[in-house]
Computed example of a mutant assay.
Amino acid sequence: MLASVLTKGMRGIAYAALVVLLAACGLPPVGPGFYRVERGDTLNKIARDNRQSVQSIVRWNGLSNPDAIEVGQVLRVAPPARTSTSTAAATSSPPRARRPAPVAAAPDNTPTPAAVPAASISLVWPANGKVIRGFDGKDSKGIDIANAEGTPVVAAAAGKVVYAGNGLRGYGNLLIIKHNGDYLTAYAHNHALLVKEGQTVTQGQQIAQMGGTDNDRVMLHFELRYQGQSVDPARNLPPR
């Protein structure tokens, strides 16, 4: 599997490279007050460009490690909307002929919740075989399915091939399919690729043959991404 052939540093480089590729595939723009992390960004640079302090951005986004931002990650770079805590009291008490109390702002240290898919996607299993590793969002960004070399690999959903090649170290012969503005799937370590970039594929269509390129065993490494962020494919796959 991927973890067994990469050192921790090289695995980080490979995942960062994949995130760059996935994040570039038609992600929707972020709203006012937010920023999507790009390649080469640091938290210091983002804070400086948006005239904010690093501490404020860390607090608004609930970041436990300021050095662990990823390409494609959406960050709040403007203070959350403030509300008055004196409104309720004003409606329940008669007016007084004295200077009104200062408006108290709501605390702004509530972490921004992680992005939750606004719409689901229905997938089919990309290959037959035994699931030998599941998704954990940290060391494993997808699931690993083991079987014999040449086992058919199929498109988990209809879409367009946006990458077909072996230019990302640690992934071997890799395919990436864009399904809509939100979702992409990735298929790694293939023995042979049967489709090309720009080609439209249907759900269940064979796109590759399982292999062990850039890996120590034959298997398919399968990833699902929502707006550039890895999510657990098992949640969108039918039970076996």
Rank of each mutant, 00 (worst) to 15 (best):
G62H: 13
V58N: 13
L168K: 08
D67K: 15
A14P: 12
R217N: 10
V19K: 15
A234Y: 00
P117T: 04
L18H: 09
L175D: 02
I207E: 06
N109G: 15
A155K: 03
A158G: 01
R59T: 15
G40C: 10
A90W: 06
L75I: 08
V58S: 14
G198C: 13
F34L: 15
G170V: 03
T42G: 15
A192T: 11
E149H: 04
V153D: 03
P94W: 09
L2T: 10
S140Y: 03
V74W: 03
V19N: 14
M10Y: 11
V131T: 05
Q229A: 06
R36Q: 06
V153E: 03
Q52R: 15
N173G: 05
P79Q: 07
A118R: 12
A127R: 03
N147M: 03
I57R: 08
T213C: 09
V195D: 05
G172E: 03
R36N: 04
T87Q: 12
A146D: 06
G159S: 00
N109Y: 12
G228D: 01
I176P: 03
E38C: 08
I176D: 01
P32A: 14
V218Y: 04
A158S: 02
T87Y: 10
D214E: 14
T85K: 14
L123G: 04
V37L: 06
A234D: 00
P152R: 01
D214A: 15
N180R: 03
